[in-house]
Amino acid sequence: MQKSLHIDPNKCTGCLQCEMACSYENYGQFNLAKSRIKVFSFEDAGRKVPYTCTQCAEAWCMNACPVEAIKIDAATGAKVVLESTCVGCKVCTIACPFGTINYVHDSGKVQKCDLCGGDPACAAACPTGAISYVDADWTGLEKMRQWAAKTDTQANAGA
C-alpha cells in the first residue's frame, strides 16, 4: 500500500516542529532555512498552512529534468533527487507548479521532499496531527468520517 503525506491546515498551530524535524533528518541540524516543508502564516485570517511536495504521479520536475536526476522511489512513490546526477540547472524549479522543489546554494543542487524513505519525520514530529502519513488512496477518509458523523440518519435506521 502506498502512502501519502496528508495536511490538515486547521490543526496547524505554527510550532514549526515539522521544519526542525525535516532539517534534522536531512542535514543533522535544526535549521528552518533547510527544511523541505514550510509552514506559511496568513496573519489576518489567523491561518497557518504547512506545505510541501505532494509527489505528483506525472511529476513536472521529473519530466523537466534534462539529466534524469529525479527518480521514483518504488517503495514510496516519492520523486527523489539524485544529488550525484543533479547539475543544479533549476529547470525543475521552473517546471514545478507548486514551488516545492528548490535550489540549495550550499550544495549547488536542488532539494525536495523524499518522504524520508517511507517514514516522514515531519508527520512524526507534528504534535497536533496536522501532518499525517496515510493510505494514498484514502487521504480523504478522515474528512469523510467527519461528514458521516454529521449525517442525521439514526432515527430512520432504527425504525
Partner: peptide, 15 residues
C-alpha cells in the same frame, strides 16, 4: 476566538 497558536517549537499552543 479564531484559533489557538503556538510560539516556535511549542507543543502546547496556548496563544
Amino acid at each position: 476566538l479564531v484559533t489557538n497558536n503556538a510560539c516556535f517549537g511549542c507543543t502546547i499552543a496556548c496563544g
